[in-house]
Simulated assay, not measured.
Amino acid sequence: MSEFARVLATLRQIRGLSPFFALDVGRPDDTWHDGAALSHGTALPDTLDLISARYRTRERRVAGSLFFLGYTARLLSPVVAARAVGGAVPDIRPGNLWWRYTPEGLQVRLKDPVAGVGVAESLEPVVEAVHAATSVARGLLWGNAGSSAAGALRTISRSGVDCVALADELFADPPLQGTGEFIPFPGEIAFRRRSCCLYYRLDGGGTCGDCPLSPR
């Protein structure tokens, strides 16, 4: 089986877990941005403006955190699921992506169904781009990635797949190492991160289930 076929087969296998695990492939219409636009041009700053307006915040770093939280949830979920089922892990580097921000939130899709690389190499260019645009701390952004990966593991485990060993493997090395810790909890994957995504800074916002801060 070719690499293309193996990646497509894996994406078909995992897409039913939840909408966050559904990753489409192919060139979309012209409302989408090329992945390169994450680091160049006005697409990312314009999107951060939309997020700030949507959530009524003047804190640029909050908008940056929310953008990256959505970005990692949409991309790390299928990556983690592919590893959990022993399939071909897709390439989620910016060069292989299309993306756009709509009233429904951030959407992403692959250019080609090819195999990917590690989490650090896949996400680091976007961490740097969001940090440059908002001054939000890199450690906080990697904490968002850790939270997204842990959330994916929790969803996958509820489908009956044992994810304990994969959780240990994913969080054994940087950049996810140190972003949080797994807490023993019968029949569940529970995670507490070491940084806060800043959602509580929004009007009407609060703390998330994995937040290290006291509930608000």
Rank of each mutant, 00 (worst) to 15 (best):
H40I: 12
Y101H: 12
P186E: 13
G160I: 08
L69A: 14
G87D: 10
D91Q: 06
A132G: 09
L176W: 07
A53S: 12
A167C: 03
W32N: 08
T72G: 00
V136T: 09
R154Y: 13
P186V: 11
D91P: 08
S195P: 08
G206L: 02
L176C: 10
P215E: 08
G209K: 06
F21G: 00
G206N: 03
V89N: 14
R158S: 14
P175A: 06
P186D: 13
T102Q: 12
G209T: 05
L75E: 01
P45W: 05
G151P: 05
L69C: 13
M1N: 14
F171I: 02
A145E: 08
R100L: 03
G87I: 04
L44F: 05
R54S: 11
A172M: 08
S18P: 04
V127R: 01
L202Y: 07
R74P: 00
G70M: 10
P78M: 03
F67W: 11
C208V: 04
G146K: 03
P19V: 06
L140I: 15
W32V: 07
L75T: 02
L66G: 03
T42W: 12
L48Q: 05
S52F: 02
G187E: 13
G95M: 10
G105C: 12
T72Q: 02
P103V: 09
F185Q: 15
S2L: 04
A150L: 09
A150K: 07
R194E: 08
R54N: 11
T155G: 13
I14P: 01
L8G: 07
R6T: 09
S18L: 04
E59Y: 10
G116Q: 12
V161E: 09
R192W: 11
A53Q: 10
L110N: 08
G146N: 07
V164S: 15
T155D: 15
L213M: 14
W32M: 05
K111R: 15
D29L: 07
S77T: 01
C211F: 04
G209F: 06
D29T: 04
V108C: 10
A150T: 10
F191H: 09
P184K: 13
W32F: 04
Q13P: 01
G105I: 09
H131Q: 11
T134R: 00
P78A: 06
R27H: 06
S214R: 15
E188P: 09
R12W: 02
H33E: 11
Y199M: 11
R56F: 11
L153V: 03
L198T: 10
G95F: 09
T31A: 15
R83H: 13
R93W: 06
G64N: 00
L141D: 02
P184H: 14
D24M: 02
V7Q: 04
R216P: 11
G86V: 00
A132N: 09
R27W: 03
Y55A: 03
S77Q: 00
T134V: 08
V114Y: 05
V117T: 15
F185H: 15
A9R: 07
R83K: 11
G204T: 01
A82N: 03
F4K: 15
T42K: 12
G116V: 10
R60V: 00
L76W: 01
R93P: 04
L11M: 06
L75Y: 03
